[in-house]
Each structure stands twice: as structure tokens, then as C-alpha cells.
Nucleic acid binder design. Structure first.
Lengths: 137, 137
DNA sequence: ATATTTACTTGCAAAAAGCAAGTGATTTTA
DNA sequence: TAAAATCACTTGCTTTTTGCAAGTAAATAT
């Protein structure tokens, strides 16, 4: 795992150095909520990430211990990307970011069910998301 | 308030467009947890933000409705920066970011008391932080 | 054997961040 | 009350990061 230069000893700063850019949490979102697991799937995000940026961010997330690369069971041309424990521990942050957005922007239809679950039982949603991610191991 | 170009209609993407860079949440942290409220105080962050970047981020946070500028009661050479309701609603995200960091890095002595409170009673901490920020109005 | 898929890399232009110095309005100090 | 200091920025310039388009090598499918 990468040793960071650390702009300061603040925990918020530590976290932002690991995932505080425009792309990292979107990749985590795709691995977490959209069940994507290959480079090709991640490259097809709604936000149209450039392939070189995707590669750079995946490397950085891996160096920070948030994701790991594994052999894909279907083909060795493919790579299986998945969240580590450290990556799965970002679920509560992703949930809070979703809940904040819900207060200040319109939520697309396809996302409303997920938001409803988060609102109805935040703890339950987090536990369940964890369980689902772990079952894919 | 700024109308965003919106990379996509995803709520996570919406949120990251408002505060998903290396500096915005550190400024929010200073306003929220460190009780800073002037440009000069914010410029003295541990992470040594450049003054032009600080000015740019403050403008962007203001355009996104997360902070507001007010007249400083002590002097009209000063400006009072404070979180709006929308900005205060970032408290749960800041809390989760702190808790994530706590699992994966050493927390400095001066921050341990705050973390202890977050752990002991997350909801209570959030409510209290809200109350304190609102009392400064 | 050839074409296609997959996970990247490379080269270059554009945008953003970072540094050091400066500015003009207030406010304090001598 | 004139000069020095404070305050909130701005400006100019360099460096770093992002973004786009095209390319590559290994594996798989046809």
C-alpha cells in the first residue's frame, strides 16, 4: 500500500488524499452500487471517464488499498476489480453523499428505490450492501 | 446559485461537482469543526492552501450555496464566512469521513476527543454540531 | 488465420493548481 | 494625522493534472 506524503495529520485530509478527486468515488459507486467489475464496464460510466484517467484512478485506488485486482473467472483477458474491506467501509460515506444530494437535487427515477431504502433504514441498507459485496467474493 | 453542467444525473456525481475536489471539504471542515470564519483564518490551514486557490474555492462553494459571505461584526475590512443550511447538511458526510479515516490511519491527539464523541453517539454529535453552528448566526 | 474484445498506453492540447509578489481598502499605531 | 500593518483578495507565471484521440499487445471468438 502506498505511503502518502500527507498534507497534514488531519483525518479528513487523509481521506481526501485517498479518494478526494472528481473520479475516485464515482468508480467506487460503480463497484458498490452498480455491480460493475471490469475495466470495460467501468469505462462505460454515465460521466464518460477517459480511459487514461480511469487507469490512473484504478492504480491510485489500488495503491491506497481501496480496490484490488483479481483474475476474472470467465477469461484471462479480463481483470476483476473489487472493493477491499477498506473500500467497502466507504459505504456509509456514499450513503450520506446520496442523502445530501437528495435534499438538493432531483433524483432520477432509477435511483429512487435505492434512496428510499437508505431513508427507511440507513443501518440496514449499509449492512445489506456489505453482505452483498462480500457474497461476490 | 450556480446552475451546474451536470456530468450525469447521478446524485453522487451531483454532490462531487459541488464539493468533490481536494480543497472544498477541508474548507468546510475548518468552518464546521475548527470554528474559522474569516479568509485569513482559512488561509492558515495546516494544508497550506494558496490564497488564489482559497479565493476560487470560496467562490465556488458560495455559487453552490454551501457557504455565504456576511459583514463581519468587528470590522468592515473583514468578511464573515459561514456555512448555509446546505453546508451544515454536510456534517454527516464529514463525520463518516472522519470515522473511515479513524479505521485506517492514526488520529492526532487533538482530534481524538472529537472522534470519541462521534463514536459514542453519532446522531447526538451531528445534532450538537448543528446546534452550535446555528447559534453562531 | 483473421477479426474482435479487453485492458490498457502514448502523445499532445487544455485546464487547473501552486507559487510569489502585488494591490487597494480598512484599521491600528506612533 | 501620517505611516505602518492587516485584511481580502488579484495577477503573472510555472508546474501538474485532466482530457481527447489514437494506438498497442495479449487473449478470445469466428
Amino acid at each position: 500500500m502506498k505511503t502518502q506524503k500527507k498534507r497534514s495529520d488531519c483525518p479528513v485530509s487523509f481521506s481526501l488524499e485517498a479518494f478526494g478527486d472528481k473520479w475516485s468515488l464515482l468508480i467506487v459507486r460503480d463497484l458498490m452500487l452498480k455491480k460493475k467489475c471490469t475495466y470495460g464496464e467501468l469505462a462505460k460510466s454515465d460521466e464518460k471517464i477517459a480511459t487514461n484517467i480511469l487507469a490512473a484512478r484504478l492504480l491510485s485506488l489500488e495503491e491506497n488499498g481501496i480496490i484490488q485486482k483479481l483474475e476474472h473467472p470467465d477469461s484471462k483477458a479480463k481483470v476483476l476489480y473489487q472493493l477491499t474491506q477498506k473500500g467497502m467501509d466507504l459505504i456509509p460515506i456514499i450513503v450520506e453523499i446520496n442523502l445530501w444530494a437528495e435534499k438538493y437535487t432531483d433524483i432520477p427515477e432509477k435511483r429512487k428505490e435505492l434512496l428510499a431504502q437508505m431513508n427507511a433504514d440507513k443501518e440496514g441498507f449499509i449492512k445489506n450492501a456489505f453482505k452483498e459485496l462480500e457474497s461476490n467474493r
